[in-house]
Amino acid sequence: MKESEISIWFFIGVLLTIYGALILSYGIWELVTGNLANVVLARLHAPVWWGALMLLLGLFYALRFRPGKA
């Protein structure tokens, strides 16, 4: 693809970053308040680690493929 074009990986990075931030924030709120959702294995705090993973992956792709980066 041409250099001037925004890469698909950038779009994916942005989306994962937003989703990761939202889900991680919810997970931290759950962790701090102890107000767990009514789901199985809620004590494993999946939103915290899954959200953090998505956030990190998203930031990596968003920065690595940001527009204008050579």
């Binding site: 939202l22 919810y26 997970g27 767990l36 959702a37 789901v39 294995l41 999946a46 939103p47």
Partner: peptide, 12 residues
Amino acid sequence: LVRYCSPGLLGL
């Protein structure tokens, strides 16, 4: 999905 996914994750 409903069994394991809390708000946000279910939306995902």
